[in-house]
Design a binder for these strands. Structure first.
Lengths: 192, 192
DNA sequence: TGCATTTATTGAACTTGTTCAATGCTTTTC
DNA sequence: GAAAAGCATTGAACAAGTTCAATAAATGCA
């Protein structure tokens, strides 16, 4: 399970075996059952985690009670509420397991320790945050410029695990109603 | 002008005077006239810059020729196409000065040099990217959950410099037409 | 297995936002 | 300082997406 973590890290930076071992030893494996929450609104996010196996949805509930999905985290994705975790603020997000899952988690103190002792780790997270940053910009542009139909098509192409997601969850990611997802599906199945 | 850069850096990290001097000496001042471009689509972004004075719009043009504004960068904001700059890829963005502006810019080689020689700088950019990351997540949620009216109100509250922006530019940020911005304005002026 | 609950589909009426076109108003620009 | 170009406003017709309600299908659970 820690193996998945090592492989993920190796994708971003090169690092000595010793440092890799030491850094990875700061993580703890965590099993999360389907429908359990890693984080709820109002809590302070105490972890940053790599999904070794499973599927999570990271979402927000607005003042009208409507859910917006920020992203789905599947195998090899990182999950946390970065704002809550780094700044110790109460979270405005929920992180729920959609399947039985395995995550490698590190707490704040250990991560700060790593930042101080391993410059490579600072670099690792800078690079990862930068990549996410680019993806978020891309999504903002897409949300501004594309219709729901286009975003739906993009989504099912980009998220191969969409099979296991309900219309409701896809709708909450696209920012439309689940009824409309249904109508898009129908339209597409009728050869557009 | 380099003074603005130093103040910006000091807001994020604590750093010795010596390191601050050395790092800042890697930047060059650049004057940009209104309507000039710092970057155009297709170019490789060769700089990362702090706006010491002025106003820029960072935008994308989609396949239908419609502009989407990613953000407006005013005094004390950073501007770059992070994807193009860090990965040497052709940019899909335009960065245009909306006023005569002054920017402190650093190139890729010098920034990489700084990353290697000053661990604090790695930290600086990790922290800044993280903050932007949080803001981008916030905007995605807002775009998914709020109506154009609400986003317009949020916008004019959050961007005090909106006075100098045309309806077209605001519309391109909100993802609506400039005609509709006009209609929102009218509705709001008539006591909602 | 069977019942209860959630999820998906569909339609009709509605709301939000777009498109196009016409008109007046500001800026540029020479 | 006049002509041209771009910008803002408004209305009417339209398209995209929502809401509500009714029904069917799938899933969870005892």
């Amino acid at each position: 399970m820690i193996e998945a973590l090592k492989q993920n890290i190796a994708k971003h930076i090169s690092i000595s075996d010793k440092e890799m071992e030491e850094f990875c030893s700061l993580f703890k494996p965590k099993l999360v059952k389907k429908k359990d929450y890693l984080l709820r609104e109002g809590e302070i996010c105490s972890f940053e985690g790599l999904v070794a196996e499973g599927l999570f949805r990271v979402y927000h509930i607005d003042r009208n009670g409507i859910e917006q999905v920020l992203y789905f985290a599947t195998t090899d994705w990182w999950v946390t509420d970065i704002d809550s975790f780094t700044n110790g603020k109460p979270s405005s997000l929920f992180i729920e397991a959609l399947e039985d899952s395995k995550v490698c988690v590190i707490n704040k103190a250990d991560k700060d320790f790593a930042y101080e002792h391993y410059p490579k780790i600072e670099k690792l997270f800078r690079i990862m945050t930068q990549k996410t940053h680019v993806a978020l910009q891309r999504r903002i542009i897409d949300n501004l410029s594309k219709t729901a139909d286009e975003r739906y098509l993009d989504f099912i192409q980009k998220y191969p695990h969409h099979q296991s997601l309900s219309n409701k969850q896809i709708a909450a990611y696209l920012g439309i109603t689940h009824e409309f997802v249904s109508k898009i599906r129908k339209k597409l199945s009728q050869g557009k």
